[in-house]
Design a protein around this nucleic acid. Structure first.
Length: 578
DNA sequence: CTAGGGTTAG
């Protein structure tokens, strides 16, 4: 068996073959493998990142006594392929086994902590590197510099940088990107100007620094001045224009690029997604000759974020077909679960969960939160609660999902309690949190408390969005406080959308208020002329007041517009309410 | 090995 494996490994193996080797190891329980052999397995498969990562870890765990090299290699391998959590846990595991990490493993583990923005974990490794005497190694120093830069501790980063006896261009660039990431363009520029030999990465970092603070003029200036541009330079400009909200400029740049990379396509698709232009995103997507996992993820996310759940699921289905055969990852599933949640489709939720188990997908915080939302929206509030309670890291997103779910399931008291718990835990609520909380008050009909809650948003430094006003109008309107609801709309700092006026119109129908109902109706007609529901609501308001001439007028308009049937109960489905 | 550009949850 071992000799057979050895033979295979001396060939140039493909990912599929590597998988077969792995299967052999498992099936035949070859646990007495020599470290050398496993080392070769690791080296062979490391050329095929994405789909093979999970197996590397498995292989390691099937070795009898892996040596420090194999552990270190695996840590580096995982860290370089975006599996930061796995890299960190393997790093600590090798130490529990009494193996001494090399500077190789240390810098990889530091990189993993840096990317995870895990300052505590990173500091522990820092202390350890110190003890092991690795702090004189320029790679370790640069990794430390990068760690503190990424967690936003620029004082420590600067200190490490100052104490470095020798700096290479990577060290300079790490410090530079630290200031770029913390939004300190001034210091970034200072570092940039001091770099003895700037390379293309230095220029790119500085460009994205300007792009980050929306200074596209300076970014464009540097872009023109730089001696050579690579793909990342163009992409930095591209994402700058997109964050700036200037999709047209982004597209012009995209079309002018000498060569679009995978990153360019993804940036562009995400850009269209952000401004709601799903169709343009799809047109781009279809033009891509070779689509990888991240491109599928971007397009699926685009559908999911723009309420086109059905298409998200369809694309997911396409990508797992044998002719495409791309393995989905955590990010794919986050979007897919969100899509199922939008459809209120618990059945496909179960299917997705079994799919994830089959693929060995790890439940990360994003996935747990997505599942909480799915179960909560589908009425399985207890299952959602279970997930929430079991989750290690509760943040503002998972709390918000849970609060929203409780409110929707008529458990306003629990929602309010959870909100208090969250604030006491030192987690700051955001706009999403208040959408859920206000909706809970609205469902429970707690007018005064809801209004107080709405007012309290300011105390958290939050400015209510149109949607929050919509919920408040609904809350007041249902309680019959039509005039107050109307005044609230009048006091809005931004233009109300049709949802807000629609909520008022519905309240007027419930309480038969002709005067304000007319105003609300007119606004609705103006904002959404082709929605029949608004017309019939106003007609009903007139009818209830016996204003039959007005009823007739509305009916005539409806006929002219070709609205034949008067929708009765489509209001909930039509999305006026969440 | 360490640095720059991209995809995820309410």
């Amino acid at each position: 068996m071992v000799s057979k494996l050895k033979f295979l490994l001396n060939q140039r193996i493909t990912p599929k073959q590597a998988l077969q080797i792995h299967a052999c190891i498992i099936v035949n329980s070859v646990t007495h493998l020599e470290p050398l052999l496993v080392r070769q397995v690791l080296l062979s498969v490391s050329n095929y990142s994405a789909s093979i990562i999970r197996y590397v870890e498995l292989i390691l765990h099937h070795m009898q006594a892996p040596d420090a090299f194999s552990w270190g290699f695996t840590v580096r391998f995982l860290s370089q392929n975006g599996r930061f959590s796995e890299a960190c846990s393997l790093y600590s595991e090798m130490q529990r086994l009494g193996l001494c990490p090399s500077s190789f493993a240390v810098s990889s583990a530091l990189r993993a902590c840096a990317r995870k923005v895990d300052k505590v974990g990173g500091s522990l490794i820092h202390a350890q590197a110190h003890k092991l005497g690795f702090c004189g190694c320029v790679y370790v120093q640069t990794a430390l510099l990068d760690l503190y830069s990424r967690v936003g501790d620029m004082e420590t980063a600067q200190r490490i940088f100052d104490e470095m006896p020798e700096r290479n261009v990577v060290s300079w660039n790490s410090a530079l990107s630290g200031y770029v990431k913390t939004g300190n363009v001034k210091m970034a520029r200072k570092i940039f100007d001091e770099i003895p030999e700037k390379d293309v990465v230095s220029w790119n970092s500085m460009i994205s620094g300007y792009a980050r603070v929306r200074n596209m003029e300076q970014a464009a200036l540097l872009f023109q001045q730089m001696p050579e541009r690579d793909s990342a330079s163009w992409n930095a400009m591209l994402s700058g224009y997109i964050d700036y909200g200037n999709i047209e400029s982004a597209r012009r740049l995209f079309d002018a690029m000498p060569q679009q990379s995978s990153v360019s396509w993804i940036t562009m698709i995400a850009g269209y997604s952000k401004c709601g232009d799903v169709d343009s995103a799809r047109i781009l997507f279809d033009q891509i000759a070779v689509k990888d996992l991240l491109i599928y993820n971007a397009m699926i996310a685009c559908y999911a974020q723009n309420s086109r759940a059905q298409e998200a699921l369809q694309l997911f289905n396409d990508m797992i077909q044998p002719d495409v055969d791309i393995l989905p990852d955590e990010i794919t599933f986050s979007s897919i679960i969100s899509a199922c949640s939008q459809l209120g489709d618990l059945t496909s939720g179960f299917w997705i969960e079994s799919c994830m188990r089959k693929l060995g997908i790890r439940m990360d915080d994003h996935l747990i939160t997505a599942l909480i939302d799915l179960y909560a929206k589908c009425g399985s509030i207890d299952k959602a609660y279970e997930l929430f309670n079991d989750s290690r890291k509760k943040d503002v997103v998972s709390y918000s999902a849970m609060i929203l779910g409780l409110g929707m399931n008529g458990r306003a008291v629990d929602a309010i309690r959870l909100f208090k718990e969250m604030v006491e835990a030192g987690i700051n609520p955001n706009l999403h949190t208040f959408s859920g909380l206000l909706a809970a008050y609205s469902h429970a009909g707690l007018v005064e408390e809801g209004y107080r809650c709405f007012k309290s948003m300011r105390d958290y430094g939050l400015v209510a969005s149109v949607d929050h006003y919509g919920i408040m109008v609904d809350l007041l309107g249902r309680a019959g406080l039509i005039k107050e609801a109307y005044n609230l709309i009048a006091s809005m700092p931004t233009q109300p959308h049709s949802g807000v006026w629609g909520a008022l119109l519905l309240a007027c129908r419930m309480h038969n208020n002709v005067e304000i109902g007319e105003i609300a109706g007119m606004h609705c007609f103006e904002l959404e002329p082709d929605r029949a529901g608004y017309y019939s609501l106003l007609a009903n308001i007139y009818a209830s007041a016996g204003l039959w001439t007005n009823v007739k007028k509305i009916r005539n308009i409806m006929q002219e517009k070709g609205f034949t049937k008067v929708p009765g109960c489509s209001w909930v489905e039509s999305g006026l309410y969440i």
